[in-house]
Computed example of a mutant assay.
Amino acid sequence: MDDLRRGPASRVPAAAAAGLTVAAGLGVRAGAAALGVRAGAVGEVAKYAGDALYTVLVYALVVLVAPAVRPARAALWAVAVSWAVELFQATGLPEAWGRHSGLVQLVLGSTFDPPDLAWYPVGALGAALVHRALRAQRATAPGGSG
C-alpha cells in the first residue's frame, strides 16, 4: 500500500526513465532503418536491443505505478508482462490488429519469436541493476530515505 501513497514527485524518475526508454527504442528502430538494415548482425542487434528495451519500459511503468517496489520484484513483473505479450503474439491477434494501428503494433508487436523470450530478462536485469544503484545512492545521500 505504501507504493500507492507516495506522492507524484517520487514518480518523476520513473516517468523520465520511461520517456528515455521509448526514445532509445525508437532510436534503435530508426537507426536500423536509416542503415537500411533488414537482416544480418546489425539488424539482429537492433531487434534484440528493442526487445530488451521493451522490458525496460515495462519495468519503468511498474515503478511509476508502485514507486517503492523493490528492483527484483519490478524485474519479475516486467518479465512476466513481456512474456505474456510475446505469447499473446502466437495467437495472431496482435499482428492482425497491428495492420490497422501503428500504436498497437508498437505496444503488442506482431509475430511470436521464441528468441525474444530470452531478451526480456536481459532488459529487466539491466533496469533492476540501475534501479538498485539509484536506490543505494539515494539512501546514502544526505537526507536520503532509502
Rank of each mutant, 00 (worst) to 15 (best):
60 A>H: 08
29 R>A: 12
43 G>Q: 09
62 V>M: 11
56 V>G: 06
96 A>T: 05
27 G>A: 06
88 F>T: 01
130 V>M: 04
141 A>E: 11
78 A>V: 03
73 R>S: 12
146 G>Y: 14
33 A>L: 06
40 G>L: 13
113 D>M: 12
89 Q>F: 00
28 V>E: 01
105 Q>R: 08
20 L>K: 04
69 V>I: 02
92 G>I: 00
121 P>H: 11
89 Q>R: 09
35 L>G: 14
19 G>V: 12
56 V>R: 05
132 R>E: 05
13 P>E: 06
121 P>N: 09
138 R>G: 12
134 L>A: 13
85 V>M: 02
43 G>T: 01
122 V>C: 09
123 G>N: 07
140 T>K: 13
136 A>I: 05
17 A>M: 14
139 A>K: 14
81 V>N: 01
111 T>Q: 13
1 M>V: 05
143 G>H: 12
139 A>I: 02
107 V>W: 12
60 A>Q: 07
131 H>K: 12
95 E>S: 09
58 V>R: 01
37 V>M: 04
9 A>C: 08
13 P>W: 00
110 S>F: 06
5 R>G: 09
66 A>N: 02
62 V>R: 08
111 T>K: 08
2 D>G: 01
140 T>N: 11
39 A>W: 02
33 A>N: 11
114 P>I: 15
80 A>C: 03
117 L>F: 04
62 V>Q: 13
26 L>S: 08
96 A>V: 03
2 D>A: 02
124 A>F: 00
31 G>C: 13
18 A>P: 09
141 A>Q: 11
69 V>R: 09
89 Q>M: 05
91 T>K: 13
126 G>Y: 03
64 L>R: 13
74 A>M: 08
14 A>S: 13
29 R>C: 02
90 A>Y: 05
141 A>F: 01
25 G>L: 03
116 D>K: 14
95 E>D: 10
59 Y>E: 03
46 A>F: 01
44 E>M: 02
108 L>C: 12
64 L>H: 04
6 R>M: 09
83 W>Y: 08
34 A>T: 07
75 A>S: 04
116 D>H: 10
46 A>E: 02
22 V>P: 14
115 P>F: 07
129 L>E: 03
61 L>A: 03
1 M>C: 08
128 A>H: 10
30 A>S: 09
106 L>P: 00
83 W>H: 01
